[in-house]
């Protein structure tokens, strides 16, 4: 019972740091994220450049905190759109049952037999690279697991006493579904959403690393890692800074997710 609070606290602190830096970058960055300076190439971390500079003399700290917002934006929009789609599918599938349930679940099964990365790669190949493509690509990879969770919760409440009573009172199916069952899926969905966010950030970073996510000149953590790879011997900070940001964000979200699961389930 008491378990979970500690994880939640650690997670909130870590995620809080990342969020604070990201919000800070909206108002202030020490340098412009794309400002190049030939005289300041490969500078080691110092007071003038907190995390040093890269091969173009760009300030790593500014790029890292600036790049966070796109990664986070992609992750949030992915999880939000995925939650909406999965809620609709899961509620219908669980509540209607029968052939509809069968069709939806078999499609979900078929999609989830592909590894996540491959689905994302298919979507990116098929649609042209655009800022929205990465959201669509990641969204499809997460729909199966989200749908299953909503469906399970719906099934559980469909046969509950209070739902039977509501039906006796003549409440319409749509109202039962939206007003009475859907809110009950939230506790289950909550930890899934948090873990989904961390997975989305990881996936976005991987796609950007491969050059298939957020496109330059906008900096993103994955892209920065890819650029830092070739200069890692001369400027290891160029890789460590964005990499550490990813690790802190993911660990923070995972801890929150674990804490929530222990608290609510």
């Amino acid at each position: 019972m008491k378990d979970g609070r500690k994880e939640l606290r650690i997670g909130l602190v870590l995620t809080g740091i990342v969020l604070a830096l990201t919000i800070l970058s909206i108002f202030y960055t020490p340098y412009h994220y794309n400002q190049m300076d030939k005289a300041a190439r490969f500078l080691a971390p110092s007071l003038r450049h907190l995390f040093g500079t890269d091969s173009y003399g760009r300030d790593i700290f500014s790029r890292t905190i600036y790049g966070g917002r796109y990664t986070l934006l992609v992750a949030v929009s992915t999880v939000a759109s995925c939650t909406v789609i999965a809620s609709v599918l899961g509620l219908i599938s669980g509540y209607v049952g029968g052939i509809v349930d069968e069709i939806i679940m078999r499609i979900i099964d078929a999609i989830s037999s592909f590894p996540d990365l491959l689905i994302a790669l298919i979507v990116v190949t098929v649609l042209n690279l655009g800022q929205l493509t990465i959201v669509a690509a990641l969204c499809i990879t997460f729909v199966p697991s989200f749908t299953r969770i909503v469906r399970t919760a719906t099934l559980q409440y469909k046969s509950a006493e209070f739902v039977k009573n509501l039906r006796v009172f003549g409440v319409s199916d749509l109202r039962i579904l939206l007003v009475h069952i859907f809110p009950n899926t939230f506790p289950l969905l909550l930890s899934t959403i948090v873990i989904g966010l961390s997975n989305a950030i990881l996936a976005e970073a991987a796609m950007s690393y491969l050059g298939l996510g957020i496109q330059p000149p906008i900096p993103s953590w994955g892209r920065m890692l890819q650029e830092a790879q070739t200069i890692v011997y001369t400027a290891p900070w160029a890789a460590i800074c964005p990499g550490a940001m990813i690790v802190v964000t993911i660990a923070g979200l995972n801890w929150i997710g674990e804490g929530l699961r222990k608290l609510y389930l």
Binding site: A206, L225, Q226, A228, V232, A239, G243, I246, I250, A251
Partner: peptide, 13 residues
């Protein structure tokens, strides 16, 4: 929490 490509860069370094 470590992305495998970041780990990879660290190992290489």
């Amino acid at each position: 929490s470590v992305p495998n490509f970041f780990l990879c860069i660290l190992i290489m370094w």
